[in-house]
Design a binder for these strands. Structure first.
Lengths: 346, 346
DNA sequence: CTGTTAGCGCCTTCAT
DNA sequence: ATGAAGGCGCTAACAG
């Protein structure tokens, strides 16, 4: 299967073959106007015939434009978001050696008007924006305005599918919920009983979707398990602990627990304090210092995770590809739903 | 947290600041000899002071060298290896727009002398070689010879740790085996019984390591389960089916099954023919068209997988970084042990 | 509509 | 030990 190794062609070669100048080939290559259809065809043929690929490094250098990207992230102390920011930080050498800059913009992503306001303010300053977005009409409008203004927009972790954002970097949350459900059900085994759900808020799209998927699987496949009403812990430890502790005291037959969002420490404390951390199958999200410890201790049984390093890099690469008008490598940028248990901790 | 956005510096700026010429800065940048220690220091300081990063695109263009890489892969029809080749094929535009070429070399990677011979023949033709390697002294020697000749060497999927290969792209197979063990144990639940293992051959390092990890977990955590002697199916369907069918007929109390390598179709057939495909917890490796189907049907319960697309891209990126003398992004290139169940199928 | 030309930032001889 | 100068392949004015 030896590939033919023709000495790499250049624009000039194509130009010669097509009997035109460099500039014309360049115009055709970038679909710029001002070339007679017939000429276009001749050039296209020459390109095809040689399966010519322009040298990206040369193009980048000649274009010589620096690009600025912004990442709009929640302002609160969320370990998962912090990880994404850390990985962006690790890319700094990679970024600056390509004359790219990314800036962090912290805002209250849970308040639609605040978020929308933040987005409006960014309009002209950036070539591209990645954001953790709330699915709300005001936010959708702000996104569409950005897109209309020519800014490339990528939603990160939490999507706004009704908007005209160019790309979503994150997992399918319904499938994630289904995965959590299947894990809880399978790990509980035959034992009948009740299953608890702790979420941040049912108003968050990603949480709602996860719960939906979870319930779907529970209903269809684990008839022996009955799901209790969703508790809302606002992603806070104290509140999560409190609501779960109450639930545990009322139901002695809880055999499974799904923690949909953050507040993991609170959930774990409630379980331990009730002395039931080893009996209840506990599945949550994301690999953090805390969930890692809980998995090793056997308190948590599995974590559903989306690789934050991959998400950070994918968001940057997608913004860059969009800005340059290059194709996006879907396969590479797709974020998978990882199941992490004690023995495959990354 | 706004970053300072200094207009990107160039070599020339550094040269001026250090009071030297372009060429000298370039020499320092690449640790080339012929610069007085004192001058080196002055230049280094200027670079540090501005945290200067040379523009990679410019460097690539100026260097202008095409690189050739080879991938040495098993010649048999292995679906997983086929996937890696397919993903390499998908990269062709990416590769040629960077003036890189990769060529596939098929060989019998299971025969040490054949493999070693193939490797020797490649010495001078390539800047870098990725290979699926057998851990054997002859192969180790061939690898070390390549390294001595200045060729960059990456082992893929299967490692030769005792060699001086520059990098290994693949998973930790002991951990993968542990993960499989934990899954079988947890999914079986309380039910006591026996567990079967089907491997290609215990002589393959990766299979041996997986079995080791699997047994480790079984022994330490699932006292109720007893592991039967390892069956060898040579990664062939017919043979795997045959040996497993015999085992199933002898032991009515098999509750778990770990298929370490290929031959998956044979294993599945044996289970189905015995009418026990729904009762036995079946864990295997890799996501292929077949394992995907088996997972959806509920015949397989989980697949331990290493993302073939990621492995293909990581191998190329690592070879390229090695060839250019750039740092390898460990975090990015690390291959994770994926647990794939029905609901998180990629 | 098409061609000419001057760089982009770095690397690499070749001089000094 | 150091500097000067000509590209690498493409893009973007500016002419025609």
């Amino acid at each position: 299967m030896a590939e033919t190794l023709t000495a790499a062609l250049t624009l000039k070669d194509i130009a010669r073959q097509a009997g035109v100048s460099l500039a014309t080939v360049d115009r055709v290559l970038h679909n710029r106007p001002g070339v007679r259809p017939d000429t276009v065809r001749r050039v296209r043929e020459a390109i095809e015939r040689n399966s010519f690929q322009p040298h990206v490094a040369a193009a980048e250098l000649a274009r010589g434009r620096a690009r600025r990207f912004a990442f709009v992230m929640p302002s609160g102390p969320n370990p998962f978001m912090q990880q994404i920011e850390d990985y962006l930080g690790e890319m700094s050498a990679w970024l600056s050696s390509r004359r790219l800059s990314v800036e962090m913009v912290a805002t209250d992503v849970f308040d639609p008007s605040v978020l929308a306001g933040t987005l409006e303010g960014l309009s002209d300053d950036y070539d591209g924006i990645a954001m953790v977005a709330l699915d709300h009409p005001g936010v959708r409008a702000a996104i569409d305005d950005l897109v209309d203004a020519g800014t490339k927009v990528v939603t990160l972790v939490s999507d706004v599918p009704s908007s005209r954002r160019h790309h979503y970097v994150g997992i399918d949350n319904i499938a994630a919920g289904r995965t959590a459900g299947a894990l809880v059900g399978r790990l509980v085994g035959q034992k009948p009983g009740k299953v608890a759900i702790v979420a941040g808020s049912r108003g968050l799209r990603d949480h709602a979707e996860r719960i939906f998927g979870f319930n779907q699987v529970m209903a269809s496949e684990f008839a022996g398990l009955s799901v209790l009403p969703v508790l809302e812990g606002r992603d806070e430890d104290a509140r999560s602990e409190q609501v779960l502790a109450r639930l545990l005291s009322r139901h002695a037959d809880i055999v499974g627990l799904y923690n949909v969002g953050a507040g993991t420490q609170g959930v774990a404390t409630a379980l331990s304090d009730a002395g039931r951390d080893k009996q209840v199958v506990f599945v949550g999200h994301d690999v953090t210092a805390l969930t890692r410890r809980l998995l090793l201790q056997g308190v948590m049984d599995a974590a559903i995770s989306q690789n934050p390093g991959h998400e950070a890099r994918a968001a940057v690469r997608v913004l860059l590809a969009l800005a340059r008008g290059e194709p996006i490598l879907r396969e590479q940028e797709k974020i998978r739903i990882d199941i992490v248990m004690r023995d495959n901790l990354p």
